[in-house]
Design a protein around this nucleic acid. Structure first.
Lengths: 205, 205
DNA sequence: TAGATTGTTAATCGATTAACAATC
DNA sequence: TAGATTGTTAATCGATTAACAATC
């Protein structure tokens, strides 16, 4: 088996979602061409991605949607539930807690942290908001897997340091700042301003 | 001048932000190496990106931060304010309106749309919520540039069609669905579930 | 069988890195 | 001047596309 590239992993997750929809529609076989027209990803790229996971297609018939979905999940998502912790329950943080406070697929928020004393001790969709000072302990208790930074920009590095110390292996950073972390920690930056500006710039090309 | 790749454009926007911070600190010259250590982007990539815009550096001295920032902006962001419209003011939509309802750099939300009669006519941070039926007219009136889809999944294509008809040239899609649009319209998908899952998968490699 | 579709190889494309002469 | 840093070229790397023999 080849090592999976980041791009292949992202696309595989998209295939899983697409296959789930197809299975819901009781479509049990699909060709790479059909997957291409649904996802917008080229058919040869799709076949090449699938090849990283195994040989499961049948010439003339295509792929068994349920089998293919299981194949991807066995490689990528054998964990039953992925535990998310979030720092900062302002506008964005609260929206995310409201969404992922209830389990969504394999994702679930297990704890939230904030500096605001008025928020600490309250809950959002059943998720308790804890003081940042107790983070290490709470993250260990809930077996946090990944962390979300949704605090004001100036606290992002401080929060990142806490997350690294708490042994989280992945961080989603919503602040417009580059954070520095140990190199075995993965960071995904989601910067709305840069995303929107990039879209605007691309659309004037 | 070379055609700018999407990646170069995104990085250039990151350089602009970095330069703004440096200028605020009254640092008026910076080398590609220093920019590299701040942003995490390799110095040769940075020099190559800059070369797409012009020759502005001085050997031994580096780049004039204010001049370099202006150079990027002249190419990418000559428009004073980019007008954003948003469909759907649920949890996420509301958070975004609260943030971009006030101008943030060159970005500003100018109008919001929703199906919920209770929300229509109300305002968030001064931004009025209009009925979806009036979208074409309102978008034209406010000179909308790009649109955000933050509605429930099942309405995403419907909203995309309205946006295309209203001549928006860029769409940010927060729903977990692939939308189909005319091919001169740019789409940026931001799917939190896939982003979080991908981060998790990458972190177990 | 006939023919559509897979799995895979080879060709192409684009982006990144390395290296260094030019230069202030 | 001496030497650090740019701008740029060549080398490398990885990802995508094209093509097609294998095959059910």
């Amino acid at each position: 088996m080849k090592k999976l590239s980041k791009k292949t992993i992202s696309r595989a997750l998209l295939y899983i979602r697409t296959l789930e929809n197809l299975i819901k529609e009781k479509k049990y076989f699909v060709s790479s061409q059909e997957l291409s027209s649904i996802t917008g990803i080229s058919d040869s790229k799709i076949r090449k991605d699938i090849a990283c996971f195994g040989k499961v297609g049948k010439p003339r018939i295509g792929y068994d949607t349920r089998k293919l979905k299981r194949l991807f999940e066995d490689f990528l998502l054998h964990k039953k539930v992925i535990h998310i912790v979030i720092f900062g329950v302002g506008n964005l943080g609260t929206a995310i807690v409201k969404y992922f406070g209830i389990r969504r697929g394999k994702l679930k928020i297990v704890a939230a942290f904030d500096k605001d004393k008025k928020k600490i001790g309250t809950t959002i969709k059943g998720i308790r908001i804890y003081p940042v000072a107790h983070a290490a302990e709470i993250i260990a208790k809930y077996h946090g897997d990944i962390g979300i930074i949704a605090v004001p920009e100036k606290y992002s590095q401080e929060v990142a340091d806490i997350m690294v110390a708490a042994h989280l292996k992945g961080i989603v950073n919503f602040t417009p700042t580059s954070i520095n972390v140990a190199k075995d920690v993965f960071v995904k930056d989601i910067d709305f301003s840069i995303s929107f500006l990039a879209l605007y710039c691309n659309s004037r090309t």
